[in-house]
Amino acid sequence: MTHGTGYVDPAYLDAAARLAAEGKRRSYERLRLSAGASVLDVGCGPGTDTLPLAEIVGPSGHVAGIDRDPEMVAEADRRARAAGVDRRVEHRVGDATALPFADGAFDGVRSERLLLHLAEPERAVAEMVRVTRPGGWVVLVDTDWGTRSVDTPETELERRMAHVLAELCLANGYSGRRLYGMAKRAGLADVTPEALPLYVTDYALWRLLSRLDVAGEEAVRAGVMTADEVRRLDESWRALGEAGTFFALTTLVLVSGRRE
């Protein structure tokens, strides 16, 4: 299938999952699930979260995952079979803004790093609330790419690249800071935000997670940076990586709320 600018593959998602492991753990806790519960992961990717959620709800529980990419869904199904949880985990191809589930179908619903890819994220949040039972919890997790900061002597170029990553490479790159307001406007009660810093000291890992090749092409195409400026900036980061002093920082935001 043809993928858009914001597309990332399973290898990217696996690397991001390791970096965001604490945020994932906190998001599971905020769902307040017990054995036998039903839970939906919206934008499930290759099953990164549906498999751990299957362990939380146990053999009598039910986990559903939905993703618009058939390749991701196929990989999620493969991983569920390999983990021996496929009888209580299902993955479907579908649209986050038109979930194929009945009202109040789940005890909890979560999404992680999904809304930053959506042009109409509030529609997706409304759908998540709709399919959550009264008293159930909705948990939203997203990166705020506007908080991304990377050490470099090329500070002015780094700020321009931050703009490219947040505004040209993603549909909703400032999603993290918007989760609280979206949850409130969606009618959720007891809305609680939390922010977790994410840092990377491995240049190669950061380059993968920032999709720097794509970002550089977008920067040049948009006239925000020249090809030489992109090269200079990357060389400055590469030098810090070789010196063992590379450092990058961003923020992961978690917001939970209860459907009344």
Results as ranks from 00 to 15, higher is better:
Ala17Gln: 12
Leu240Asp: 14
Ala20Ser: 13
Gly65Thr: 06
Val73Arg: 03
Val253Cys: 05
Val141Gly: 05
Val224Lys: 01
Arg178Phe: 04
Glu167Lys: 13
Glu229Pro: 02
Tyr7Ala: 14
Asp77Trp: 00
Arg87Thr: 15
Arg123Ala: 15
Val200Met: 14
Gly146Ser: 08
Asp67Glu: 13
Leu254Thr: 09
Val73Ile: 10
Ala183Pro: 09
Cys44Gly: 10
Ser256Gly: 15
Leu196Ile: 15
Ala11Gln: 14
His3Tyr: 15
Trp237Met: 10
Val131Ser: 09
Val129Pro: 01
Ala243Tyr: 04
Leu140Gln: 12
Ala74Tyr: 01
Ser210Cys: 05
Asp144Gly: 08
Ser34Trp: 06
Ala166Lys: 04
Ser111Gly: 10
Glu242Trp: 00
Asn172Thr: 07
Gly6Val: 03
Ala35Gly: 10
Ser175Asp: 05
Glu235Lys: 07
Ala204Cys: 00
Leu209Glu: 10
Thr152Asn: 05
Arg123Ser: 13
Gly23Ser: 06
Thr5Phe: 02
Leu99Gln: 07
Pro193Met: 09
Ser210Val: 03
Tyr203Met: 00
Asp142Gly: 01
Arg123Gln: 15
Ser210Arg: 02
Arg26Ser: 08
Ala21Leu: 14
Met161Arg: 02
Leu252Ile: 00
Glu120Leu: 09
Asp151Ile: 10
Ala171Glu: 03
Met161Val: 07
Val220Met: 01
Ala64Leu: 09
Val39Leu: 10
Ala183Lys: 03
Ala17Ile: 04
Glu122Lys: 01
Pro70Gln: 12
Glu127Ser: 06
Ala186Pro: 09
Trp145Ser: 03
Pro193Phe: 14
Gly43Arg: 01
Gly61Thr: 08
Arg25His: 12
Gly104Asp: 13
Arg123Lys: 15
Val255Leu: 06
Asp41Asn: 12
Asp69Lys: 00
Ala16Glu: 09
Val141Phe: 03
Ala20Arg: 06
His3Val: 14
Arg238Ser: 11
Ser210Ile: 02
Ala76Trp: 09
Leu99Thr: 12
Leu205Gly: 08
Ser149Val: 09
Asp41Ile: 14
Pro52Asn: 09
Thr147Cys: 09
Leu209Val: 12
Glu156Cys: 00
Thr152Leu: 01
Arg123Thr: 06
Arg133Gly: 07
Ser60Asp: 11
Arg130Ile: 06
Leu198Lys: 00
Tyr12Arg: 13
Glu156Val: 05
Glu167Phe: 12
Gly135Phe: 02
Val150Ile: 15
Phe106Tyr: 10
Met128Pro: 01
Thr155Ile: 13
Val131Asn: 08
Cys44Ile: 08
Gly84Lys: 11
Asp14His: 13
Asp14Ile: 13
Pro197Gln: 11
Met1Val: 06
Arg25Cys: 00
Arg88Trp: 13
Ala21Tyr: 03
Lys24Phe: 10
Pro153Gln: 06
Asp9Gly: 08
Thr143Cys: 10
Gly176Asp: 01
Asp9Gln: 04
Ser210Met: 04
Gly257Phe: 03
Leu33Met: 05
His62Ile: 06
Ala80Lys: 11
Leu233Gln: 02
Pro100Phe: 10
Phe106Leu: 05
Arg177Thr: 12
Leu115Ser: 03
Gly94Arg: 11
Leu140His: 03
Gly61Ile: 01
Gly61Arg: 00
Tyr12Thr: 07
Glu235Asp: 15
Asp144Thr: 12
Gly223Thr: 07
Ala219Thr: 08
